[in-house]
Design a protein around this nucleic acid. Structure first.
Length: 406
DNA sequence: ACTAGAAGCGCC
DNA sequence: AAACGGCGCTTCTAGT
């Protein structure tokens, strides 16, 4: 049988071959623009001081804003948020929740709420990234994380510092990402797998609708929305939820719609993609029979709770049974690519710096992106063959924030 | 003084 | 009424 896919390693072989790759990445590190972060710290601290004063004024007194229990008293008892309306406030173990998802319900109700949200965002970024990161820079002026492969699905984790959760979504957060720079004479190159988890689900299930959408190179959310006859936004939420076995409740929360409507969307989704529904069922059945779920290369996750009598634990295990092969296979594909790149590409052409699950960040000599990116992408695209095409997207730039596509 | 758990939130 | 896959870090709080 002729195949262009190289012989696949066992899980043990994969982990073993990946280890030296990770050690090289850790040793290389990444340059951090420390002076820039210092000015950012001053800027953020000034904003936070103003926000704090505004919050005290709105509350009528000082209190510890960072204390969820004190904040709950101020919001729900003193300012009576949610009192008149039939607003359900989620409870935690010891008090009413002040999580962002709860505060969102009152964002237009009282001026203190948007101030709290902004205060949370700015203090989070300041104390988690802006202040500590410069302190972790080594003598070589670079930041060196430590990777482990000890997670349940075989993904990497990163710590001291964690460089897999550097902000990217908000405008404020992007200011931090900008501090990750290439050393002089170099630029950064980022290549990420496009929709890899959904492609894996399409591959495992063999669902013709999903496979067709990927084969035609379509925008997957638009394509699934079309096939279902719903908005792209709805399709995107369902596609996302599928990856961790989300039910009607979760989808209702994500789309802010009634549960019955969410259930109708899910029913419709599985009518449109029947083999996906079949696959999910069979994965759960197999996990129940065998006691574990497994990835493409056979990494197992044991799920004894599937046979238990606690419905909450059983439901949780059923979701994990679906998520594990998807998330774990993603980690395997990226791991295979990292090993192949490490073997094939000399360090002076492209040095792998970071892995963020479906993204690899490289440091390359300035001006070489258009020649090296296709080589790297060719490796990443062909490291394994699925029943759908694998696609990667490349961007380059002087720092991790200001990047343009190739 | 130290630790462990909650709560919250950054990322995929 | 209803807790959703995988991580790590900071802060507060209650415990020793």
């Amino acid at each position: 049988m002729a195949t262009k896919t190289p012989k696949l390693p066992t899980i043990e072989q994969l982990d073993k071959q990946l280890a030296p790759v990770l050690r090289d990445m850790e040793a290389r590190g990444i340059t951090l623009d420390v002076p820039y972060l210092k000015t950012l710290a001053t800027e953020f601290q000034a904003n936070i001081d103003v926000l704090q004063a505004d919050i005290y004024r709105e509350a009528g007194h000082e209190f510890s804003i960072k204390s969820p229990s004190q904040l709950a008293v101020v919001l729900y008892d003193e300012l009576k948020l949610g009192a008149g309306e039939e607003m359900w406030i989620k409870k935690t173990k010891s008090h009413r929740s002040t999580a962002a998802s709860e505060l969102a319900k009152f964002v237009d109700t009282h001026p203190i709420v948007p101030l709290i949200i902004k205060y949370r965002e700015e203090t989070k970024l300041l104390s988690t990234y802006i202040v500590p990161l410069p302190e972790l820079v080594a003598e070589d002026g670079r930041l060196h994380t430590t990777y482990s492969i000890d997670t349940a699905a075989g993904r990497l984790s990163s710590k001291n510092p964690n460089l897999q959760n550097i902000p990217v979504r908000s405008d404020e957060g992007k200011k931090i990402r900008r501090a990750f720079v290439a050393q002089p004479g170099f630029e950064l190159l980022s290549i990420d797998y496009s929709q890899i988890e959904l492609r894996i689900a399409a591959h495992f299930s063999g669902d013709p609708g999903l496979i067709q959408a990927f084969t035609e190179g379509r925008d997957i959310h638009a394509a699934t929305g079309e096939q279902m006859g719903v908005d792209r936004r709805v399709a995107k939420a369902i596609n996302f939820g599928l990856l961790f076995g989300q039910g009607a409740f979760g989808l209702a929360g994500a789309l802010n719609i009634p549960i019955e409507d969410a259930q109708a969307f899910i029913d419709q989704y599985f009518v449109t993609f029947p083999k996906l529904a079949e696959w999910m069922k069979s994965v759960q059945q197999k996990a129940h029979d065998n006691g574990y779920a497994e990835t493409l290369l056979g990494r197992k996750r044991y799920l004894a709770e599937l046979k238990g009598f606690n419905a909450n634990l059983r439901n949780f295990a059923e979701r994990v049974a679906i998520n594990h092969p998807i998330q774990g296979t993603e980690a395997e594909i990226v791991g295979l690519a990292m090993i192949a790149i490490h073997k094939a590409i000399p360090l002076d052409q492209a040095a792998m710096l970071l892995q963020v699950h479906d993204e690899l960040l490289f440091e390359i000599p300035e001006g070489t992106a258009t020649t090296i990116a296709p080589k790297l992408q060719q490796i990443m695209d062909s490291v394994i063959e699925l029943s759908v095409p694998i696609k990667t997207e490349a961007e380059h730039g002087p720092n991790w924030e200001e990047m343009e596509g190739l």
